[in-house]
C-alpha cells in the first residue's frame, strides 16, 4: 500500500519531465499565439515592415465592415445547414448500417467512409470539376435526364455558390458523423432492443423509443463538433470558390486569410482572427450550457 502511495506521490521533477515536451509545443504554437494575435490587432502592419499603433482602429473598422458581417452570416448558415443536414443523414446511414437485416453492411460502410480520407484540397479541386458548367458531372447528368432548366452555374452564381459548396462539405463530413453514430448504436445494450421487441415495438418505434434516446449524448456531441467546425470552417471553401463570387460564399476564416496573406494587412487580419476566436468561444459556450441544462432537466 505504501508502495502504491509512493507511485502516485506528487513528484515535481517527474511531472515536469513528462509534461514539458507537450506543453512546449502546445504553449508555443497554440496558447501564446492567441494573446499575440490580440496584440497585433492594435497595429497597422504589412507583416514585414514597421508596426504602426492605431489603438482600436482595426476593431472600429471591423464593426463597420460589411464583408465581415456577410461572412459571419454565411458561417451561421453553414452552422444551420451542417447540423440540420449532416446529422440526420449520418443517423439514417448509421441506422441502415447497424440493422442486423442489412445485407452487405460491411461493404457499404467501407465505401461510405472514403470521403473522410480525402484531403480538403482534393475535395475542392474534385468538386470544381463536378460542378463545371459545361463538362461537370452535375450538369451533364441533368442534361442526360432532360432537365435542361435545372442546369446552373453552380459555383459562379452568387445565389447558389454557398449552397453548392455546402453540398461538398456535407459529402465530406457525413461519413464522420456516420461512424460516430454507428459506434454509439453498436454500443447500445442488446437487451433494450429485445425488451422493446417483446413489447411489440417495430422499426420506427424501436428507433424513436430506444435508439434515439440512447444516442442523445452522442448527438449532442456531434452537434457541438459540427457547430465549432462550421464556425471556423476554411479549407474546402478556400479550395472551391475562395469565397467568391463577390464574397457570396465568403466565410470569416477565408476573409481572414485574404486580408492577411493576399492583401498583407496582418493587423486587420489578426483582428478578424481574434473575432473568429471570440465568436466561436461565445457561441459554443452558450450552446454547451443550454444543452447541459436541458440534459440536467430531462
Amino acid at each position: 500500500m505504501n508502495k502504491l502511495k509512493a507511485l502516485l506521490r506528487n513528484d515535481r521533477i517527474a511531472v515536469a519531465v513528462f509534461l514539458a515536451p507537450a506543453l512546449f509545443f502546445f504553449a508555443l504554437y497554440m496558447i501564446a499565439p492567441i494573446p499575440i494575435s490580440a496584440y497585433y490587432s492594435l497595429f497597422r502592419w504589412s507583416g514585414i515592415g514597421e508596426k504602426v499603433f492605431i489603438g482600436l482602429g482595426n476593431w472600429a473598422e471591423l464593426v463597420k465592415d460589411p464583408i465581415f458581417w456577410l461572412s459571419f452570416q454565411n458561417n451561421l448558415k453553414l452552422v444551420v445547414v451542417s447540423i440540420g443536414t449532416q446529422l440526420p443523414m449520418a443517423l439514417l446511414l448509421a441506422v441502415f448500417l447497424s440493422a442486423r437485416t442489412t445485407k452487405l453492411a460491411g461493404f457499404f460502410k467501407t465505401i461510405y467512409f472514403i470521403p473522410l480520407l480525402t484531403s480538403s484540397v482534393a475535395i475542392g479541386v474534385m468538386w470544381r470539376y463536378i460542378y463545371d458548367t459545361n463538362f461537370g458531372l452535375v450538369n451533364v447528368l441533368l442534361r442526360n435526364l432532360g432537365l435542361f432548366s435545372w442546369i446552373q452555374d453552380w459555383l459562379g452564381d452568387p445565389k447558389l455558390a454557398l449552397y453548392s459548396v455546402m453540398v461538398a462539405i456535407n459529402w465530406r463530413f457525413i461519413p464522420f458523423y456516420m461512424i460516430l453514430f454507428l459506434a454509439a448504436i453498436v454500443a447500445i445494450p442488446e437487451e433494450l432492443f429485445e425488451a422493446a421487441m417483446i413489447d411489440g415495438a417495430r422499426g420506427i418505434q424501436v428507433f424513436r423509443h430506444i435508439t434515439l434516446p440512447q444516442l442523445r449524448p452522442t448527438i449532442i456531441n456531434a452537434a457541438v463538433l459540427s457547430l465549432v467546425g462550421a464556425l471556423k470552417f476554411f479549407d474546402i471553401v478556400f479550395a472551391m470558390t475562395n469565397g467568391g463570387p463577390a464574397h457570396a460564399s465568403e466565410l470569416m476564416a477565408t476573409y481572414m486569410y485574404k486580408r492577411s496573406f493576399t492583401d498583407f494587412r496582418m493587423g486587420y487580419g489578426s483582428t478578424v482572427a481574434v473575432a473568429i476566436f471570440l465568436i466561436a468561444m461565445v457561441i459554443s459556450t452558450v450552446f454547451l450550457n443550454s444543452t447541459r441544462r436541458r440534459t440536467a432537466r430531462s
Binding site: A32, P33, I34, S37, Y40, F234, S260, V274, F277, S284
Partner: peptide
C-alpha cells in the same frame, strides 16, 4: 475548440 486561424499570423511570424 481553438480555431487555428487565430494562431496563423503569430505562427507565421514566429
Amino acid at each position: 475548440m481553438i480555431p487555428m486561424h487565430v494562431t496563423l499570423i503569430p505562427v507565421y511570424t514566429m
